[in-house]
Design a protein around this nucleic acid. Sequence first.
DNA 1: ATTTTGCGTGTTACCGCTAACAATGCTGGG
DNA 2: CCCAGCATTGTTAGCGGTAACACGCAAAAT
Lengths: 363, 363
Amino acid sequence: MTKAGRRKRGAKTIEDVAHAAGVSAMTVSRVVNQVKNVRESTRAAVLEAIELLNYQPNTAARSLAAGQATHIGLLYANPSASYLAQFLIGALHAARSAGVHLVIESCESEDADEQAEVTRRFATSDVEGVILPPPLSESQPIMAELDAMGIPIVTVAMGAPRDNSLNVRIDDRAAAYEMTRYLLDLGHRDIGFIKGHPNHVASTDRYAGFCDALTESGLDCDSAPAEQGYFSYRSGLTAGERLLARARRPTAIFASNDDMAAATVSVAHRLGLIVPDDLSIVGFDDTALATSVWPELTTVKQPIAAMAEAALELLIADLRGNRGGAGRTFTERVLSHAMIIRESAARPPGSRKLAAKNQARSS
Amino acid sequence: MTKAGRRKRGAKTIEDVAHAAGVSAMTVSRVVNQVKNVRESTRAAVLEAIELLNYQPNTAARSLAAGQATHIGLLYANPSASYLAQFLIGALHAARSAGVHLVIESCESEDADEQAEVTRRFATSDVEGVILPPPLSESQPIMAELDAMGIPIVTVAMGAPRDNSLNVRIDDRAAAYEMTRYLLDLGHRDIGFIKGHPNHVASTDRYAGFCDALTESGLDCDSAPAEQGYFSYRSGLTAGERLLARARRPTAIFASNDDMAAATVSVAHRLGLIVPDDLSIVGFDDTALATSVWPELTTVKQPIAAMAEAALELLIADLRGNRGGAGRTFTERVLSHAMIIRESAARPPGSRKLAAKNQARSS
DNA sequence: ATTTTGCGTGTTACCGCTAACAATGCTGGG
DNA sequence: CCCAGCATTGTTAGCGGTAACACGCAAAAT
């Protein structure tokens, strides 16, 4: 009677599985944790029992017994809301399968001292590793503080890898190259560019990719119209206005993220330009904003949730592996991006017939 | 030596605290869990020891021992990204203090059968309660499925409370009333309204609040220009266009959420109208979009994160309390909203002098 | 005065799982 | 044939808490 005393309704335990498979609990544990030294036939029997009973290990018991990491920190600072939402979803998903709690905290300040302060308070609680999504993945003060406390870090979308650290990113340069290539193939020759925040390495990479494509097509990148932006909608407004006020107006604009692309769409409309007939506009990130404006934005999709998952996996692997004491080494994971073609880009004005012809060809 | 064998670096245990306070571990547990029957002096001693050692209970051990809920489900369907981000942050925060894991899943389908299907799969995993933020908080199929499986639900921002359920919301009607009152006080008499999704009770409430204020000022609500929207940016575009195409153009527009307000701003700009000089536009929710458009939106702030926290707390309290077996009863929590005055609303055109005078008065 | 309450606290026995070690069985070398 | 050496599996002892119960003692009841 004590046996079922405090147990929850119907939850299967490792003991149930062990009994069903005719082995000991320890063996089941070994199978579940992919430890070697289990005979193939035994493993199969256990797996079958697990399947049969629909056994799901109790994460609380697991981390208690193993003394494993249980709290992973996530420090963020106002990226676009949709970026954050997707990132959180991915992180949460990974956290769940790893049986780990996510402790999230915001750090909005730009001031180095204050960032360090927030970080210290944060790290003093009980996080055993920290995930740093952009833009914090570029913050020196935060990383220095964490390093000093000996807390492992995994950065996301950081361009300048540090020694002895983990990083997850996409190939921004290649992605920007592809997008530019796409515009060039469409027939555009006057392509304007809105740069991202100068502190982000991703900004530089995207611009580099843009130039790669231009150069490849025999165009001079330095003479291509480019304006500085800061990844915000507001900055996109200004940059867009400048670009469209130029004597020789570009027929296409490539903004370094969707927020700035959306702002440019708004500017174009105010000027009475039809997108994409008079002007093509493309973005980067494929955040929710890309599909909420009209026309919907052609953009590059970053696998944000997947990146968050990868980051957490990397960190946990490091944490677990590191308990042995061996120093960890630099690890990076590059996930793949994807071009998302929607309605905001088309052939440049004056090439309609060509457009129609090609449309027919491609269908 | 076995004593410190598997223990993690420096983590304080309940035993440490007990020793420091000169009591047993059980007593510390009682203090931590706010159980009664602890003498005041003992409690103080324990609290002091906790403070001193900076003790933080191990959530894994706690939920293992108590057999408490460990996984709370969160089913969502594309609300605006910034709403979701904020909601997740709040939920995560509360989940952490409760030592509970959040299991989140999306359910985008509008189809009843499919919703039921997703819900069933979701609930079959091991969630012990489910949080339903809008718009899912209005979904009958999902709630019916969950009810059938005996899984407690807490809805957020649902207008039509069910028997035997938990709900968290703000007073949409009062908030909309206040906002309309604000526009009226500014001098507006022709105020257009963009309604929210007809399936949401919040939409009805907001419109009711709008009417309350109008009626109070002796205006007829039925003759006030109102267009149907669906909470999306796109629907705001259409509604905004219709409203501004009217023969008698409103001097102010109250959109039922920020997305639609932002869309209306965009339409106004396209028509060459200056906001707020020619036209005042206000929104609802205070999502990130409100501050990313220009001019920044005057809006109503929903305490989204706090609502998520409240929802989780309510659910957990129910879960814990319910283990006794007593049927749970209807509980609702209404959080307070706030008016956020920014730059998108001003006095109607033609009342500049009055505006200046009042400005002076109010400062 | 003795029993009854019941409050405040300690003891014991787990929760479900895994580290460390022990035991078992098998292979092959001396 | 015995035993080292290895692969495989079982046993024991917790991880850090909490439920349930036992216990001591003062105030209230008989």
